[in-house]
């Protein structure tokens, strides 16, 4: 049943992450042999302006790190939401949280006005809008889908559809008011692209990533108990309301920042925790750290593929994850239906 020991996976992922980062750094429209990377790095640090150095460390490196951090944040948000909803099918993009965040971001871009021209402040404002949108969406889905008896998958997904439709309508409305530049920015998000990666974006997503790493693992025990049910968790001494608040806030924050920086990268939060569960089981004490790491690895790989698959052009990264994720989601749905006597699907 379980393919790996719970601690092994963490070491394996820690070993793989630098490898995929180096491969990602080396590959692209201009291939730089990994041997030459260190030399370029020293030269770039020294202020060198060689073409390869610039490509590697001003374009590729921030993008790779952004991808890794995004993967970490999205996978962490997915794992936490699945625990909160007590359902392995919860995912920020499926249940409307990402669309909610995107509507919030769209609102700020269109109506934020002059503030947005300043790089840092603008980025933070967009992130705040996305957080607010995502927060409202998680709260709504949670209220709608979760009763004392647990979360109904169908209600959760339907609520997700409703919220996505609503957010889509709002986005269209904002686009209606937007000028050309704004339109381009809005449509870039909707594809989930890392093309606009910069060190500023890396820094902002890093805030969310640090928060996830600092907060989520501490909720593991309580999340495990919550899987039994809310009142069961309460009887086990878990402060359920505080836990729910914390999870909702941190996932809305993480997803909001991820969406503000790179748009909707779908299905990462669904697939990554699921793979980890297959490998080492559902215990959050191991699921969360491993999901965070595997999320980073997965996004680096997905983004590298996005950059090299149709050279010299690039695919939006969200297209890669969605093409992998949608069939995966369907197969999960079919599996759940086969086991529906367990009471999760109506």
């Amino acid at each position: 049943m379980r393919l790996l020991h719970q601690r092994q996976l963490l070491w394996i992922l820690l070993a793989i992450l630098p490898v995929v980062l180096v491969v990602g750094l080396a590959s692209g429209a201009v291939f730089v042999p990994p041997r030459a990377l260190l030399g370029h790095f020293a030269e770039w640090l020294g202020g060198g302006q060689s073409r390869d150095g610039l490509i590697l460390f001003s374009i590729r490196l921030p993008r790779l790190i952004l991808a890794a951090l995004l993967g970490l944040v999205l996978a962490g948000a997915g794992a936490a939401m699945q625990g909160l909803f007590r359902n392995p099918l919860a995912d920020p993009s499926l249940i409307g949280v990402a669309s909610g965040a995107s509507a919030g971001a769209g609102f700020v871009v269109v109506f934020g006005g002059a503030f947005l021209s300043a790089g840092w402040l603008g980025m933070s404002l967009v992130a705040a809008g996305a957080f607010a949108g995502g927060f409202v969406a998680v709260l709504l889905v949670y209220r709608l889908a979760t009763t004392a008896a647990g979360t109904s998958v169908s209600t959760m997904l339907l609520a997700g559809i409703a919220i996505s439709a609503m957010a889509g309508a709002l986005n269209s409305l904002f686009s209606f008011f937007a000028d050309n530049d704004m339109l381009r920015r809005i449509s870039l998000w909707q594809m989930g692209s890392l093309e606009g990666a910069s060190w500023e974006r890396v820094a902002i997503v890093a805030v969310a990533a640090v928060l996830m790493v600092a907060v989520l693992p501490r909720q593991s025990q309580a999340l495990n108990a919550l899987l039994l049910g809310e009142s069961e968790a309460r009887h086990l001494g878990v402060a359920v309301e505080a836990l729910k608040r914390r999870i909702i806030l941190i996932t809305a924050f993480g997803v909001g920042i991820a969406v503000a920086s790179s748009g909707i990268v779908a299905f990462v939060g669904l697939m990554v925790p699921h793979w980890v569960r297959l490998l080492i089981g559902p215990d959050h004490r191991f699921l969360i750290p491993n999901s965070l790491l595997l999320g980073a690895v997965f996004m680096v790989v997905a983004d590298t593929l996005a950059r090299v698959l149709i050279l010299p052009a690039e695919l939006p990264t969200g297209v890669i994850t969605a093409m992998l994720g949608a069939p995966f989601f369907v197969s999960l749905l079919i599996q759940q239906r086969r086991r529906s006597y367990s009471g999760v699907l109506p």
């Binding site: 108990a225 899987l227 049910g229 069961e232 086990l236 089981g281 559902p282 215990d283 367990s342």
Partner: peptide, 20 residues
């Protein structure tokens, strides 16, 4: 009745009793 839809092993479920 308790709905638990995650593939914990039996020992892990009982271990949850030790949460407090």
């Amino acid at each position: 009745g308790t709905n638990l839809d995650f593939p914990f092993t039996v020992a892990e479920v009982v271990m949850l009793g030790r949460t407090p």
